[in-house]
């Protein structure tokens, strides 16, 4: 089903944020909308968005490619995004990530066998005082979680589902 059919109300609300002659501005929120269910953006969704905004599919795809929070491939249902940037790394982020890899049995960039978690190492999340920590991204209305600063022994890898 097309995006407009599935989410008529949301599409309308998002378009209303921007001047009608600049509806292209809605491309980012529409991409999040498209990512809500599967956790990634399908070709069909890109076509829908191109149609709604009267731009080309290539233009939509080049937005998807530019920003790191949009994904065009199916990977783990949840993405654990661990910050390993300088301030966090000064407070043990790299070790935290190593432990996490060991606990989950995967390397950075890989997905657990059950398809639940993909592990990513990301840049500063604007919460450096709470290092080490991570956020999760997944299919749901609020796609990006708040940051979690639980240590590595709190069953991470299990509990994400409820977030």
């Amino acid at each position: 089903m097309s995006l407009e059919k599935k989410y008529p109300k949301e599409v309308k609300q998002l378009l209303a944020k921007y001047p009608p002659e600049h509806k292209r501005s809605a491309v980012m929120p529409l991409l999040y909308l498209a990512q809500r269910e599967e956790g990634y953006i399908t070709r069909e969704a890109m076509q829908d968005i191109a149609r709604i905004l009267e731009i080309t599919e290539t233009e939509v795809a080049s937005i998807v490619g530019f920003y790191t929070l949009y994904h065009d491939k199916k990977e783990g249902k949840y993405r654990m995004q661990v910050c390993t940037d300088l301030p966090c790394a000064l407070r043990g982020a790299d070790e935290f990530l190593d432990n996490l890899c060991a606990n989950l049995g995967i390397k950075v960039g890989e997905t657990t066998e059950d398809g639940l978690v993909t592990l990513e190492s990301v840049m500063c999340l604007a919460a450096c005082d709470r290092a080490p920590m991570f956020q999760t991204q997944g299919p749901r209305r609020h796609q990006v979680s708040r940051v979690h600063d639980r240590g590595p022994h709190h069953g991470i890898g299990r509990g994400v589902e409820e977030e």
């Binding site: 944020k17 600049h22 292209r24 501005s25 809605a26 491309v27 980012m28 929120p29 991409l31 999040y32 905004l53 731009i55 080049s62 937005i63 530019f66 920003y67 790191t68 929070l69 949009y70 990301v122 840049m123």
Partner: peptide, 24 residues
């Protein structure tokens, strides 16, 4: 308006491009 993971969008003109629905 939510960005989507790009430090450069803090630079004001990149931010505006992004807000216009383009690459930041």
């Amino acid at each position: 308006h939510l960005g989507a993971g790009a430090y450069i969008c803090g630079e004001e003109t990149a931010l505006l491009e992004s807000l216009e629905g383009k690459r930041g």
